[in-house]
């Protein structure tokens, strides 16, 4: 499918950067060549954290939480020997700092 795109991916990124207003929050992943949209990143989290069902369960809702708190918590999970968790520390390793920041901002901006 990529072959059909008329401009190469570097120009696409520049194009994205030009459009990078608060409405276009794709972020760069360190590992992958192309950024993963924050909606795609956040969708993965919904497998356990979808609101409002998570309310009242041991799994916390993310929508509307403070961005700094969210970022700090995610970085704690990612740190070697960080916060004891059941599975968070196992899935969060692959996210870059930029992605975690984007996730924190994304969830903070959602209505709880």
């Amino acid at each position: 499918m990529r072959k059909m795109v008329s401009f190469p991916s570097r120009r696409r990124r520049v194009f994205a950067a030009v459009l990078a207003t608060p409405f276009l929050s794709t972020v760069m992943s360190v590992a992958a060549a192309d950024p993963v949209p924050v909606t795609t990143l956040a969708y993965g989290c919904m497998g356990c954290h979808a609101a409002p069902a998570a309310e009242g369960s041991g799994i916390r809702t993310l929508a509307g939480r403070d961005a700094d708190d969210l970022l700090a918590a995610m970085k704690e999970y990612r740190a070697p020997g960080g916060t004891a968790s059941t599975s968070m520390h196992r899935v969060i390793g692959g996210y870059s700092d930029v992605e975690l920041q984007a996730l924190a901002d994304h969830f903070a901006g959602q209505e709880p």
Partner: peptide, 9 residues
């Protein structure tokens, strides 16, 4: 448009 990069959990 080209597909956005994926991530799956």
């Amino acid at each position: 448009r080209p597909p956005p990069s994926p991530v799956w959990l």
